[in-house]
Design a protein around this nucleic acid. Structure first.
Lengths: 145, 145
DNA sequence: TCTATTTATCACATAATCATGTTGAATAGA
DNA sequence: TCTATTCAACATGATTATGTGATAAATAGA
């Protein structure tokens, strides 16, 4: 009942880039060392994010990965979804086919509210919101007060 | 970001038993057929629940599984935890060591509220609350309005 | 051009999850 | 006691998640 390891790495790496944002690319090795996560594995994850358009990769000396957009324009959902199917369609906690929005099961309403708040958190929160570096912590919308 | 397949099976099976409660044991085969899940796999899951004290198993003709307690005395957490570590300690969404309740990261507070509501849902909701069969839908506490 | 740096990609290794099949043990009832 | 029923236990396989290592490709700069 939590983020996959992969998604967690992706999020922490993106956050690290947001916090050390300078428009300059950061090598995988540096990020891996900072976060204390396996280098090669992180490399693959960042590559996935690059293919998804969340990051930009540059090869060769001075290369590395950087965020495609500014941190206040990237939601957690955008970072996580390429590696972990977040907020999927079936809102029903149980896998019941007979349960839908039209004919909801008892869990539907009560769990639905929680699922919705989770969805909102991932889709409304930006990297800038979570970055610890002081300064311009602009945020988009605020679903959770 | 959802229950494991195993936990979902456990929950659905327990719910099925709550809805067909008569103090009588139900064979795995019947439950598996009703839920449309693999029989042998469900058997192992129910066995785990029995060892955890959530279910009682009876062998031989007329045997099967039944709930140890009445549905309004069994929380979702009790059913799910034997097969899926739910609501674990680390409240921090990211795996940051430097993040604790004393020195929280930016995600901490906002995500913490959601994590807490999830925890409450699993620990305060009983099988009776989710059982669709009409009648005595007694509930313990109501954390989520 | 040559070299150092860095991502991209491929091939595995390992463990967990998900699932199936088979056999053994217990038990109710004839 | 015999038999059908049912859980218990074990072995095994498939798939996915997680992680490692080696090599190829790109590129900046001397």
């Amino acid at each position: 009942m939590r983020l996959s390891q992969t998604a967690e790495y992706a999020l922490r790496a993106a956050l690290h880039m947001a916090e050390h944002d300078g428009g300059t690319a950061i090598p995988v090795g540096d990020i891996a060392k900072s976060l204390g996560v396996p280098r090669n594995y992180l490399s693959k994850i960042l590559h996935q994010l690059a293919r998804a358009g969340v990051l930009v990769s540059t090869r060769g000396p001075g290369g590395g990965f950087r965020l495609r957009d500014s941190p206040d324009q990237l939601t957690l959902a955008e970072v996580v979804s390429p590696v972990d199917p977040i907020a999927d369609e079936r809102r029903c906690l149980l896998g019941r086919e007979e349960c839908s929005n039209i004919n909801p099961c008892a869990a539907h309403g009560r769990w639905g509210a929680i699922a919705e708040s989770m969805r909102a958190f991932f889709f409304e929160t930006t990297l800038a919101d979570l970055a610890t570096r002081g300064g311009k912590e602009s945020r988009r919308k605020q679903a959770i007060p």
